Computed example of a mutant assay.
Amino acid sequence: MMQLTSRFPGTAGNLMLLALCIVWVPDTVLAAGPSFDCAKVETGSIEEIICKDDPLSALDRKMTVVYDAATKKATNEHPPVLKAGQRGWIKGRNECWKSDDKRRCVEESYTLRIAELQARYRLVSFTGPVFYTCDGQPANEVVATFFQTEPPSAITERGDQTSWMVQQPAASGAKYQGQNETLWEHHGEALVTWGYGAPEMRCQAKR
C-alpha cells in the first residue's frame, strides 16, 4: 500500500481518511428520483413503479426537461395543444397498470413521448423538409421532415393533415409508421400509405 507522508505530524491518517471520503460516495447520494414527490404516490400505482426504478426515474426527469423546452417553443401556439396533450399522455402512461409487462409499457411510453415532443417542437437536429410527388401527380404531395430522436422519427404532412411517425425495422431504406400512415423511403423514392386501408402510393422526392 502506498504510504502517505506529511511534514506535519499526525496528518497522514487524516489525509488517508480524506482520500477515502473523496473516492467513496454512497449510492443513495448519487441516485435521484423522478420529478414528482414519491412520498405522495399511491401504493401499487404506476408512479410507485417509477419511484422504485432508477432508469424510469431518469426518463421522468428527462421528460421534465424536454417538456419545459417544448413549453418555451409553444408560447404562441394556437390552439394550445401541448398542455392538453401532456395530460392525455400522463393518463395513457398510467394505463400501463393493465399491461402484462408494466415496466416495459412505462418505458416505451416515456421514450415515444420524449421523441414526439423533440420532433414536434424542433428540439433536436433534423433533415428536410423533403417534398415527394406521389403517383406522378404534382398536386398529390407528401412533405416529410426526419428527426434525430431516439428512436428516429419523422413528421409527414399531406394537405392539411399531419402524422408523427416512428422508424421501424426494415430490410432496406427507412420505414416510418404513424397511427394509420406509413412512409418507406429509399434513395429518394418512397412508398406511402395515408389512412386506414388506403392504397399504397409511389412517391418521388423533388430535386
Results as ranks from 00 to 15, higher is better:
Pro34Leu: 04
Pro152Tyr: 01
Thr145Ile: 04
Cys38Pro: 11
Thr111Gln: 14
Phe36Thr: 05
Ala58Pro: 04
Ser45Lys: 08
Glu95Lys: 13
Pro138Asp: 05
Leu30Asp: 01
Asp60Arg: 07
Glu157Tyr: 02
Lys98Asn: 09
Pro138His: 04
Val23Leu: 13
Arg61Tyr: 10
Ala74His: 04
Ala119Ser: 11
Val124His: 08
Arg87Phe: 08
Val124Pro: 04
Ala31Cys: 00
Gly88Tyr: 03
Ala32Phe: 03
Glu107Ser: 13
Lys98Met: 05
Ala144Leu: 10
Ala119Val: 05
Asp37Ser: 10
Glu150Val: 12
Cys134Val: 14
Cys96Ser: 05
Ala154Met: 11
Asp54Ile: 12
Thr145Val: 07
Asp68Gln: 15
Leu82Cys: 07
Pro152Cys: 01
Arg103Pro: 04
Arg120Gly: 00
Ile50Ser: 03
Glu48His: 04
Ala31Val: 08
Val29Ser: 02
Leu117Thr: 07
Glu107Phe: 06
Arg93Gln: 10
Gly136Ile: 10
Phe131Tyr: 12
Gly88Met: 06
Glu116Tyr: 07
Ala58Trp: 00
Gly33Pro: 11
Gln118His: 02
Phe36Arg: 06
Pro34Lys: 06
Val142Ala: 10
Ala84Leu: 10
Pro151Asn: 03
Arg61Phe: 12
Val23Asp: 02
Gln86Ile: 08
Ile155Phe: 03
Asp135Cys: 07
Ile22Leu: 15
Val143Leu: 03
Pro34Cys: 06
Ile114Gln: 02
Thr156Ile: 13
Asp60His: 09
Arg104His: 07
Tyr121Ala: 04
Glu77Ala: 05
Arg103His: 10
Phe36Leu: 06
Asp60Thr: 10
Thr64Trp: 03
Pro138Tyr: 00
Asn76Gly: 00
Phe131Ala: 12
Glu107Leu: 11
Cys51Ser: 08
Lys62Cys: 00
Val29Thr: 09
Thr64Ala: 15
Thr43Cys: 00
Thr149Gln: 05
Pro26Lys: 04
Pro34Phe: 04
Glu95Asp: 15
Gly92Met: 13
Ser35Cys: 07
Pro129Leu: 02
Arg103Gln: 15
Phe131Ser: 09
Pro26Gly: 11
